[in-house]
């Protein structure tokens, strides 16, 4: 029975007021009657049906209804208690009575204004339903299935555009970064866990060089066993021994010309005899005139390369 509580438009109210006046008087009378009797009113089923039907048909907008209503009222007066079931209606009427009393003070002016201001009329029930449907639909919508989240539909396109732009920018930036990293890593290679043939060959070459040097060292230092080359005491003895060793080597050299120490000697400058110079047996290659001494080392290099992989140890 929601239709019972229907908001009535201004026109209705205006007309009702007058009716209400009558009604209020009636109600007062009725109430008095009601209280006075205090007995329970019996309502026939037929009557009840009829009442309901009439209530359904009731429309405050129509002028005719008012008459009906009035008839109702009069009817009600006869069958008091009929309203006891429809309490809401009754209370509303009572509220309306109060309103009427207030409006009585400024009746003439109010009437004209109200008519102008509120021209449209909507049923409360209809409004409620529409509102409910709208509200439900909003609640039903989950923000999850929309990528953008809850956004006013008008701006949806703009926001999507902006997001797409941002994404593309991010991508570009990431690519630039990656490229930079790649350039930075250019040439950087992680070695494999096993030794490939090239690495083995290189290790072999290095080993050969080390062995050559160590052998030369052992040969040179075998003459000065037990003496400390750094101390001045042993200096003379060492020099003597070295000289002897050198001369014995010279004697041998005529027989076998390939000697590691001899090579070092030979790579010096040709004009003066190498052992007489101060820097004998030291690094003889000077950077100063590297392009002037071409002939002697070249021959040597050829000899070396014929040995196999030539290696120079310093």
């Amino acid at each position: 029975m929601t239709e019972e509580t229907s908001i009535t438009g201004s026109g209705g109210i205006l007309r009702k007021r007058k009716i209400g006046k009558k009604k209020s008087n009636n109600a007062k009378k009725k109430m008095k009657v009601f209280q006075g009797t205090g007995e329970k009113v019996k309502v026939d089923r037929k009557m009840k049906k009829l009442f309901r039907k009439r209530v359904k048909e009731y429309n405050s907008d129509d002028d005719d209804d008012d008459d009906d209503n009035a008839a109702d009222k009069s009817f009600l007066n006869k069958n008091q208690g009929a309203y006891s079931e429809k309490n809401g209606y009754g209370t509303r009427k009572l509220g309306a009575d109060k309103l009427d009393e207030e409006s009585e003070l400024s009746e003439g002016e109010d009437d004209d204004e109200n008519i102008e201001v509120l021209p449209t009329v909507t049923k409360f029930a209809e409004g409620c339903r529409a509102f409910r449907i709208a509200f439900k639909s909003i609640i039903k919508k989950s923000a999850l299935d929309d990528v953008l989240g809850p956004i006013l539909s008008g701006q949806k396109k703009l926001v999507a555009q902006k997001l797409a732009e941002e994404e593309s920018e991010k991508k570009l930036r990431g690519e630039a970064k990656k490229e930079k990293l790649l350039i930075g890593e250019k040439g950087h290679i992680k070695p494999s866990n096993y030794l490939d043939s090239h690495e083995k060959f290189l290790i072999g070459v290095a080993t050969k060089g080390v062995v050559k040097l160590f052998n030369a060292v052992s040969k040179a230092q075998s003459t000065q066993k037990g003496l400390n080359p750094a101390s001045s005491k042993d200096e003379k003895v060492i020099k003597k021994r070295r000289k002897e060793a050198f001369f014995t080597a010279l004697g041998k050299r005529s027989a076998s010309s390939s000697d590691t120490s001899a090579k070092v000697v030979a790579s010096g400058e040709p004009p003066s005899w190498a052992p007489l110079r101060d820097n004998y047996m030291l690094t003889s290659c000077k950077l100063k005139d590297w392009d002037k001494m071409q002939e002697t080392p070249e021959d040597e290099d050829v000899g070396k390369s014929s040995h196999g992989s030539s290696s120079d140890d310093d």
């Binding site: 040097l213 080359p229 030291l282 290659c285 590297w290 040597e300 290099d301 050829v302 070396k304 390369s305």
Partner: peptide, 27 residues
């Protein structure tokens, strides 16, 4: 190793790298 091809720039490279580390006296 392998620098003895007689080319000038290689010789220069050899000398450069030989002199980058302190010389070793065999004795």
């Amino acid at each position: 190793s392998g620098f003895g091809t007689g080319e000038q720039h290689l010789k220069l490279t050899t000398i450069m790298f030989q002199n980058i580390f302190p010389a070793i006296d065999v004795n």
